[in-house]
Design a protein around this nucleic acid. Structure first.
Lengths: 237, 237
DNA sequence: GCAAAAGTGTTACGCTTACACCCATGG
DNA sequence: CCATGGGTGTAAGCGTAACACTTTTGC
């Protein structure tokens, strides 16, 4: 960038804030840490960073995620931009909310602790700085909406999981019980699960078969799919 | 804002760019204008602006929309942030894409012309500056996805419209023909259309009854609705 | 042998889809 | 009177939803 053609225009600080969901011990949790800059230094905050001159917003959010959890290749999507003029008393600063789904079993717990970050169940969250509470509720709403239409639940479970685990996750996300026979039938009928020969015996004597998400098959289905149901009954929310 | 607590951090230019859709003469059109700043001054561009210190990104996009079309209260949603480091050779500048649906019959045509803005059918669009072409294709994809689940088509039609008009719009959006009996049945079964006593005779001798979108009823349905179908068949895209 | 979770099948209903003819009117 | 677009009904098929019992095994 040799020249600034827009000189005289207004510049602002641009940050990313990550709304990081995990599924652990049967509940949805959120990863937060203690803010390291004034104002509000030391208060609970989403994990974020200013966007650097040499990176995009998506690169910035992946960078901080890796820094704190050690994880690469995370499911992360832009939520929205928070740009209210007075949202940050520290300075005019807009923030891009990015929500992430991570596998709690794969992340680096010591790294997380060393940054003073902590997992909180969603219903025990402390108050967060700025508009971060709003970001969390927006992200939760988005998670619910998207989980209705896309198989994103898998991003929150271990690579190998059982059908009852999957059902429990969806029950937590949607705050609703499902019939286990219909749930199993439905999920298997999608043909995006690969059944393994192993069983998980951690939650029952009989043991439950483990499955893997088959993202190749999913991509195939997506490709040819697209039936465009106009409005499909109650999906008109 | 009395003090800058983040001094020493990097600031960037933040702009909004509006992807403005209209439905006219049976085709989807996009409103573009000639860029007024260097570099690329005079080339076709989405309509945008820098975000000012005293406004949010949403306020900025509504401001430029009003400035060019004279319209208030427009359906406008954030698409996503475009923040690739080299997206704008003029300077490091991130842009927030905002897509808008407007009623072509209600906008101020002279105002549009006086700004050098022009409606182009989507398949006759000139090349646009920067990453604006990408913004358009992203917005179109979003429009299609959203139109499957939410009744947003009404935002593109006159307040009063006929069922055949509505069908034509959906056929254009989805590039797909619908059976007129099923289409009518489906839309009426949603119970969000109010039938008027007037007829529109502009496209047939018999004339077609006019309808209005009933947003109150729609809100009611949304409120109690929410049946959460897990994945509803092909809706798993 | 029993407690606790995993796993399985069938039926009724409602929504979706396919399909063809009559109606109203202006010219 | 006829050409043009508007408007209507029905039957078959498919996916959804409701429902209860058997299996496995560690203790």
């Amino acid at each position: 960038m040799v020249k600034d053609w827009y000189k005289g225009g207004d510049k602002v600080y641009v940050a990313v804030d990550c709304i990081i969901f995990g599924f652990d011990a049967g509940v949805l949790k959120l990863l937060v840490f203690k803010r390291r800059v004034a104002p509000f230094e030391g208060r609970w905050s989403l994990i974020g960073s200013f966007v650097r001159p040499d990176e995009s917003s998506s690169e910035a959010s992946h960078r901080v995620l890796k820094e704190i959890t050690g994880l690469d290749n995370i499911y992360m999507k832009e939520l929205r931009v928070y740009s209210e003029v007075d949202r940050d008393p520290g300075a005019r600063c807009i923030s891009i909310g990015q929500y992430a789904l991570i596998r709690v079993d794969e992340h680096d717990k010591e790294l997380v602790e060393s940054h003073g970050a902590k997992w909180y169940p969603l219903n025990e969250l402390p108050n967060l700085v700025l508009d971060h509470g709003k970001m969390v509720s927006d992200a939760l709403e988005r998670l619910r909406t998207n989980a209705q239409f896309y198989p994103i639940g898998f991003e929150l479970l271990p690579q190998k999981f059982t059908i009852p685990q999957l059902q429990q996750l969806y029950e937590v996300i949607f705050q609703k019980q499902f019939d286990s026979r219909n749930f199993r039938k439905k999920l298997l009928s999608l043909e995006i699960l690969k059944k393994l020969d192993e069983k998980d015996k951690s939650s029952s004597k009989k043991g439950a078969f483990l499955f893997q998400f088959d993202s190749d098959k999913y991509k195939q289905i997506r490709k040819k799919g697209f039936s465009i149901p106009l409005f499909k009954n109650q999906d008109v929310l």
